[in-house]
Design a protein around this nucleic acid. Structure first.
Length: 922
RNA sequence: GGGCGGUUAGCUCAGUGGUAGAGCAUUCGCUUCACACGCGAGAGGUCGUAGGUUCAAGUCCUAUACCGCCCA
């Protein structure tokens, strides 16, 4: 379809639009890259370069963080594809268990329905239809972003293949003894009705109360030993849980309480007595120094309870309500926070509340529902991740995996070193149902290692049993941790894709999911595939709002990427993302960066438009037999062999410099240097530096200087200049393509190419293109032009006014030899001599003079020159100071010393001339 | 409590040892035949503070202040 599509384009219109219009260009390419995806070939001989997308959650649509992620990924992928790699950008999405279920439940609630009203099957149907909707929106956004993903390989974490991978992971971990079922204290989300892992909880400090309660000692003797006080005071922030108290704990070395250890005290509002125990976990400085131990409702208490063999009755149910026979009737059935108030009131009434004071309490909130989590004791599935973490740490030691910015390696390590068992079961419906079955006696049945795919209730060996499958599903990260290899065919280890594209080269993601996702992928990959899942982890910063705050739905400060795309264009947005991404720093939103991208796109568009116009004007006068002319004329890409390839053309051009002007030689030399620079930055994954280099070269050098300098030579007689114009522009398009794929593809086509730019080769660096002489000479010409412009400005002339100037200095001869360029660009006329008083501008190697006519106010000019003189004096003194220091001369490298000497000379010469110029006004 | 990042021009940010940069804003002048989403000429920083290392420090080290983030 390539050729057919190409017909309906700007390439065939006679002229490009005056301004770049993203809306007129982007949809066509976006559609093309989606409909004809960049397929990666597992059988190719090219070296692989793989990046798997951090799969977006199907909870809605993409935010700016995703747009940033995918821009960076696509830029690297497009670069590597051009550079000769078998580049695979593997797209897909995450079912995002709890997040998605919460979203759909919220929708249902708005309709007055609960998931239980629907039942599991009907509810899942709802979620799948939401997945289709959300997934479609995400896909559309990625499509608009122009990512060159291999859409034939799109994956979803609940695909058949990926679900199979999850099951294999679990079965294997179970038989290795790493996955187990046990009763532990877990974090319960009373709204979502599921457990949560540590990572799914946000800590927040809230204002609360700390209550000091009186627990009456059981016998009089104890009371006596307590200085007559018949009580022990404890501090708590959760008085409503006292009914589940199992002990009072004090620090073993706390003299205040030593005599009470072993005594018993009564729980207020009840008739039950609990022992006073000693445990080192008690903080002596907290409250009054004694704690009530409630194993079922606090993680620390749970641990203390385990050490002392305490029972762990629960008094709060899964809905967060007080329950159990232990709770007095008055409070039974109350919601936990209401219960707290009621219990406090009762304690005041009974006189057991000694004190209540303000206290900042750290509480855990469910990341998804924002509800305070309730620690509860429950039978759940866990993974002992210690051994897996150890494998990753070993790999990090061996340097098998690089993280950039490097500082995150330590963060990664610290987390792995202090890792705790991972609760992987969730009481949700949306997700991978756990492949574990139970019989009536509570025995566990898990598929065999030999045949993990066979359900236990279909396994003939268990036919005599009545098995019930665990209704729970896995934590969503228990599937996304397999993403880099499950998407490539694992557990089928002979999968062609897996063999070719795994391990992947880079993982690009925000540092905020280093623990959630990156570390878990590391562990799964090392354990299940015996290797690191990626060579490099490239972490970028978070995309913050203009005030520097995290964007969030609740704050309503989010910015929709589509709005930015609409306002500035996708290329401009991608430019901004690349430009802003430096060193993993957080990114504060700044519309000015998007404007810069838009302006840059327009600048490039107009440069191309200009070049194209000039070339088509002269094309009829050219001889098609000449290869350069043929290249210039080409309205369509020449058939293979008829036209030299562009890099050969460049070599051809510089081989015969007679056809080139100084400006041509200079820009080709600069192009080569910039190509080397950009390539180096891209290889180092420093996209910000790369785009900056391209931007500066395109705007400041190609447009501002080269195009202006080339204007006088744009005639049919100068095939060298015409070819240089086109060649350098095409190279710019190639260098820029990974960053701004739409406009570059469009312009490349408009310059007569049929094959889309994305599949062309990356420009090579060629030392033969370096031209020191031209670089130095053109720098002098630039100085002459700038000086001439400065003089015109001082004289208050309009740019179009012609001014006669006289040029002196070392570079005078060079300037005269290139008079046409200097006269054209600066709009001056070079003359040999001038009458009367003159006003001058001095720059490196040149002094440009113009006659002062009439009543020009030169006070301003004189002031500037004097200031300049002072500056020069300072610079010279500084350089001379260094040169006269024995230490400097003895220790500094020779080239640095040479540089300082050169400065003294250069500045000295300028100073002399300035003094001379000013002398005539003394 | 532990760890990390930031502090550079009015604003937002680049810049890891050798003459301080960009975009925007600002001053002056321009409908110069690619571009006013533009062109030219300017102005504007003792690089948070205090020490130190070095021939040489925005850049390396130490301390410190303030802002932000992560973990407990």
């Amino acid at each position: 379809m390539t050729d057919q599509t190409a017909t309906d384009t700007a390439a065939d219109a006679n002229e490009l639009a005056k301004a770049f219009d993203p809306a007129a260009t982007e949809p066509r390419w976006a559609r093309r890259w989606f409909e004809e995806p960049f397929r990666a070939d597992a059988t190719s001989a090219r070296p692989p370069f793989t990046i798997v997308i951090p799969p977006p959650n199907v909870t809605g649509s993409l935010h700016l963080g995703h747009a940033l992620d995918n821009t960076l990924i696509d830029t690297l992928i497009r670069y590597k594809r051009m550079a000769g790699f078998e580049a695979l950008y593997l797209p897909g999405m995450d079912h995002a268990g709890i997040s998605t279920q919460v979203v759909v439940e919220k929708q249902l609630r708005a309709e007055g329905v609960s998931r239980h009203d629907l039942g599991r099957e009907a509810f899942l149907e709802k979620v799948w239809s939401w997945k289709a909707e959300s997934g479609g929106a995400i896909l559309e956004q990625l499509r608009r972003l122009g990512v060159s993903a291999d859409w034939t390989r799109e994956r979803f974490t609940m695909d058949e293949g990926l679900s199979r991978a999850v099951r294999h992971q679990f079965v294997r971990l179970y038989h290795e003894g790493l996955a187990y079922r046990g009763e532990r204290i877990v974090n319960w989300d009373v709204e979502a009705q599921t457990t949560l892992s540590e990572l799914e909880i946000d800590r927040e400090v809230r204002k609360g109360k700390m209550s000091t309660l009186s627990y009456k000692l059981e016998d009089a003797q104890a009371a006596a030993s307590n200085g007559g006080a018949g009580e022990i005071l404890i501090a708590t922030v959760r008085p409503e849980t006292i009914f589940a108290d199992q002990a009072i704990a004090v620090h073993p070395e706390d003299e205040r309480f030593a005599h009470l250890i072993g005594q018993r005290a009564r729980i207020p509002l009840t008739d039950r007595f609990i022992p006073v125990i000693a445990d080192v976990a008690v903080e002596r400085d907290f409250g009054v120094g004694a704690l009530k131990i409630t194993p079922a409702h606090d993680p620390t208490d749970f641990e203390i309870g385990e050490r002392h063999n305490l029972a762990r009755p629960s008094v709060i149910d899964l809905n967060g309500k007080l329950t159990s026979d232990l709770v007095p009737d008055a409070f039974r059935g109350l919601e936990r926070f209401a219960a707290r108030k009621a219990v406090v009131a009762a304690l005041i009434e009974s006189g057991d509340l000694i004190e209540e004071k303000d206290h900042d309490t750290a509480i855990g909130l469910s990341e998804r529902t924002k509800v305070p989590v309730e620690p509860i004791v429950s039978l759940q599935w866990f993974v002992n991740v210690g051994p897996m973490a150890a494998q990753v740490l070993e790999g990090l030691d061996k340097g098998e995996l690089r993280i950039t910015p490097e500082r995150y390696t330590k963060v990664n390590r610290d987390w792995l070193e202090n890792i705790r068992d991972w609760n992987i079961s969730r009481q949700l419906w949306w997700g991978h149902q756990i492949p574990a079955w139970y019989d009536g006696d509570g025995h566990i049945y898990v598929p065999s290692a030999e045949n993990p795919d066979l359900d236990c209730d279909k396994d003939p060996q268990y036919a005599h049993l009545s098995l019930r499958r665990d209704p729970d599903v896995f934590d969503t990260w228990f599937s996304s941790n397999l993403w880099p290899f499950s998407t490539l065919g694992w557990p089928d280890e002979s999968s062609e894709d897996l063999l070719k594209f795994y391990p992947t080269q880079v993982l690009v993601t925000g540092y905020d999911i280093l623990f959630f996702w990156v570390a878990r992928m590391q562990m799964a990959a090392y354990h299940l595939t015996n290797r690191a899942p990626f060579e490099t982890v490239m972490l970028h910063g978070l995309y913050l709002d203009a005030k520097g705050q995290k964007m969030s739905k609740s704050k309503g400060n989010g910015i929709d990427p589509l709005e930015l795309f609409g306002e500035y264009g996708v290329d401009a947005s991608r430019f901004a993302f690349a430009f802003l991404s430096t060193g993993g720093q957080d990114i504060k939103h700044d519309p000015r960066r998007f404007e810069q991208g838009r302006n840059f796109a327009n600048k490039l568009w107009n440069a191309a438009r200009f070049v194209r116009m000039r070339l088509s004007e002269v094309a009829p006068d050219l001889d098609p037999a000449d290869p350069l002319s043929a290249y210039i004329q080409a309205a369509a890409e020449m058939p293979q062999g008829a036209s030299p390839r562009s890099r050969d053309l460049l070599s051809h051009l510089v081989a015969d410099k007679s056809k080139l002007t100084l400006a041509d030689r200079w820009i080709i030399s600069r192009l080569n240097a910039v190509t080397a620079e950009v390539t180096g930055h891209l290889d180092a994954y420093d996209l910000g530096a790369a785009i900056r280099a391209i931007y500066a070269f395109t705007w400041d050098e190609y447009c501002d200087w080269y195009l202006e300098a080339a204007k006088p030579a744009m005639s049919a007689a100068n095939t060298g200049t015409l070819a240089t114009l086109k060649l350098v522009l095409e190279h710019i398009l190639k260098l820029l393509h990974p960053f701004m794929p739409f406009i570059t593809s469009e312009l490349y086509e408009a310059l007569g190419h049929r094959r889309q730019l994305a599949v062309h080769a990356w420009p090579e660096v060629n030392v033969a293109l370096h031209d020191q002489e031209a670089s130095e000479a053109f720098t002098r010409l630039r100085a002459a032009v700038s000086a001439a412009r400065s003089v015109k400005n001082e004289l208050g002339l309009s740019p179009q006014d012609r001014l006669s100037v006289q040029v002196d200095g070392e570079a005078a001869e060079l300037v005269r030899a290139n008079a046409r360029v200097v006269e054209g660009v600066a709009r001056v006329t070079l003359v040999d001599s001038l009458e009367g008083r003159t006003l001058s501008a001095v720059d490196a190697g040149v002094i440009v003079r113009a006659a002062i006519e009439g009543t020009v106010d030169i006070a301003d000019w004189l002031g500037k020159q004097r200031k300049r003189l002072l500056e020069l004096g300072k610079q010279i003194a500084q350089a001379q100071g260094k040169l006269s220091s024995e230490n400097f001369v003895a220790r500094a490298p020779a080239e640095v010393i040479e540089e300082e000497k050169r400065r003294v000379e250069d500045f000295g010469a300028q100073k002399t001339r300035l003094e001379e110029v000013l002398g005539q006004f003394e």
